[in-house]
């Protein structure tokens, strides 16, 4: 993720991943507000389109209002409209941009914990990160901490094998915290660079399950007070306003240090990233814009905003 990607391929992928959904939004926005004097009706339409992109009613209103300032009664070209919107969205996102860089840290092994609700894409994200890290020569351990869901272990095993990473698991329904501790010990003994720990998906309003997660964190701290060095919350971009609740509770319980937003391609509307970024204590670090391993990217607020409204780099 920190390796210099083939610049063009990277942005192309981002744009391509988002364009399928973003393009539509951009076109309708442009149709409403470009090339004619701006009036209140057009601004209202703009606001609604932003809501439909999952920006949420309040952020949508804010951006629409900011867009309307100094622009009333004037007409703007298509690109001006897009650029202005991208700038407004980027302004919301830029302070919330973070970087996931396990190899840049001196901590060894660097322990990364993956948390999130069921089906958000934890295992897949972990698999992609593992492949990226081994590709850059790191010695990676993958830990199947989802000891609840049927075949979660097998699913992760496939990813670990693809990545050429070491793999540790325990039988179903065994204690994930114990496994995590054991894995860290082994990783230290065998000089692994990174330990990636998957966890079972859980809804944030299930206290018992959240306590379980807390236990994993607690046990990891016994291994190393700094661990987990990174706790990544994996959010599904198709989720609506509940993403905020997920961020809030996971953030407070598990001490999330970074957010991964998955499924921004296809049907997803990237807009939900904006309210999440605003509400979140942890920065957005990675985004998933496709199914390929390269489709998991560092989050770049400006590039993201531009591609969201359908602008070229």
């Amino acid at each position: 993720m920190t390796e210099e990607p083939k610049k063009k391929g990277w942005f192309a992928r981002l744009t391509q991943g988002l364009s399928r959904s973003a393009g539509q939004m951009a076109e309708s926005v442009v149709a409403v507000v470009a090339k004619k004097p701006l009036d209140q009706a057009a601004l209202d339409d703009l606001e609604e389109m932003l809501i439909e992109a999952d920006l949420g009613p309040r952020t949508a209103a804010k951006i629409a209002r900011a867009f309307g300032e100094n622009r009333f009664g004037k007409s703007s070209s298509e690109d001006e409209v897009k650029a202005a919107l991208a700038e407004l969205v980027a302004a919301e996102l830029a302070p919330r941009q973070g970087r996931f860089d396990p190899l840049g840290s001196t901590s060894r092994p660097y322990v990364v914990l993956f948390v999130g609700v069921n089906g958000s894409g934890k295992t897949t994200t972990l698999g992609k990160i593992a492949a990226n890290l081994t590709g850059r020569g790191a010695k990676v351990m993958v830990v199947a901490g989802d000891t609840f869901r049927a075949a979660a272990v097998e699913q992760l095993k496939v990813w670990a094998d693809r990545a050429g990473a070491a793999f540790m698991s325990r039988p179903i329904n065994s204690d994930a915290a114990g496994l995590a501790f054991e894995a860290c010990e082994r990783a230290q003994a065998e000089a692994f660079d990174v330990v990636l720990i998957d966890t079972a998906g859980r809804l944030q309003n299930k206290q018992g399950l959240m306590d379980e997660l807390l236990k994993i964190v607690r046990v990891l701290k016994k291994f190393d007070a700094e661990a987990p060095h990174e706790t990544l919350l994996v959010l599904d971009a198709t989720v609506g306003r509940n993403a905020l609740a997920q961020e809030n509770i996971f953030g407070n319980t598990a001490g999330v240090t970074g957010i991964v937003m998955t499924k921004l391609d296809g049907t997803a509307r990237g807009g939900v990233l904006v309210p999440v970024a605003q509400a979140s204590d942890a920065p957005i670090k990675l985004i998933g814009v496709g199914e390929g391993i390269e489709d998991l990217q560092d989050f770049d607020a400006v590039a993201f905003s531009r591609s969201l409204v359908g602008l070229e780099a």
Binding site: E52, L203, R241, R269, V272
Partner: peptide, 27 residues
């Protein structure tokens, strides 16, 4: 979120859907 409409429409157009099941209703 807002995407529900498009998802439902897209599947409905392509498949002979007869009903819906909503998961994670305990969230």
């Amino acid at each position: 979120g807002q995407d529900a409409v498009r998802t439902a429409k897209a599947f409905h157009e392509r498949l002979p859907l007869t009903g819906l099941i909503l998961t994670r209703a305990d969230g």
